[in-house]
Design a protein around this nucleic acid. Structure first.
Lengths: 143, 143
DNA sequence: CTTAATGCAAAGGCTTTGCAGAGAC
DNA sequence: GTCTCTGCAAAGCCTTTGCATTAAG
C-alpha cells in the first residue's frame, strides 16, 4: 500500500477515504495524508503538530474525532504500547511491534513471519478482535 | 505463588516486600495485600477504592507512588492493554493476556503453553525488556 | 536527629464533549 | 433548509509532582 510513493498524493488519499465510506473533507484529507505519507506510527498530538506546522488548519478536536472515525471505519489502527498516549498506525495488515521504552519509538514487525502457537480457545460468547504482540526493548548504551 | 491461600496474610506480604528490598510500611502492606489476595489485574483506582473501602487509610498519591515502586522492584508488573488506564498484575511469571474490550476485563493466558516464532532479531544496541501478547476479544452477545 | 514515607492539593497531559458556527448538498 | 463537519473552550480522567507533615530508625 505504501510501496509506491507516487501514490501518496492528496488525490490518492481522497479515493482511499471514499473507499472506506468516509466523506473526504479538507481536514480529513490533511490528517490521512500526514499519516499515510509518513507510513509511521504517530500520536494524535504528533499529527496535530504536523498538520498545523505551516499554518493552523485543523483543530485538536477534529484531529481526535477524525482519528476515531478512521479507526472505526478500518482505515487505520490503534496501537496501545505506551500508557500515556495512543499511537495510530496506517498499516492495517496483520503485524506486530517493537516498542523502544527508551525513546518511545514504535517499529513494525512484519506479521507474515511471526507465528503464535499454544493460545487457549477463546472464552464462550466472544470473538477475536485481534492479537497484538509488543516486543519491548531498551537501549543498552547511554542515550 | 497464589496457590496456597493460607499464605495470603499480612505477615506473608510483609516478608514478600522485604524480599524485594521494600520497606514494609502499613500502606504498602495494605496495597500489596489487596493485589496479591485477589490475584487479579487491578488499576490504581481499583486499588485505591479497595484499600479505602472501610475507612480512609491510604492516599491516592501513595497508591500511585507505591505501585510505581513495586514495579521498579519487580514485585508486580504493569499491563498496558487499555489506553485509559494501567493495570497492575501480581503475577510476574511470563504469561499473556486476554483483554475483553466489551467489559474491560483482563484474563491471564499461561505463558508456558504459548510460543512465538519468527520474530526478527532485536535492533542494534537494544536488549529485550519483555514480550507482551494481548488477545483482544469482543462479546458476540449483547452485554 | 536524620532519613524515608505519606498526604493533600495543585498541576499536567491526553482525550472527550457540548454546543455554536460554518460548510456541503 | 437540512445534515454534516469543524472549532473553541471547558470538562474529564488518570497520573504525577511539590511540599509540608508525620513516622521510622
Amino acid at each position: 500500500m505504501l510501496k509506491d510513493q507516487k501514490l501518496q498524493t492528496k488525490e490518492w488519499v481522497n479515493a482511499l477515504l471514499r473507499e472506506h465510506g468516509i466523506n473526504a473533507t479538507a481536514q480529513r484529507v490533511e490528517i490521512a495524508h500526514a499519516l499515510f505519507c509518513r507510513g509511521r506510527h504517530l500520536s494524535a498530538e504528533d499529527l496535530y503538530d504536523i498538520v498545523n506546522r505551516d499554518r493552523p488548519q485543523v483543530s485538536k478536536a477534529t484531529v481526535y474525532n477524525t482519528l476515531g472515525l478512521f479507526v472505526e471505519k478500518g482505515l487505520i489502527r490503534e496501537v496501545i504500547a505506551d500508557p500515556s498516549k495512543t499511537f495510530y498506525d496506517p498499516n492495517t495488515a496483520p503485524h506486530h511491534h517493537f516498542y523502544d521504552v527508551t525513546t518511545g519509538e514504535l517499529m513494525d514487525i512484519d506479521g507474515d513471519d511471526v507465528a503464535i502457537s499454544g493460545l487457549p480457545p477463546l472464552p464462550a460468547d466472544t470473538e477475536l478482535e485481534g492479537v497484538d504482540v509488543i516486543v519491548r526493548l531498551r537501549h543498552t548504551t547511554a542515550y
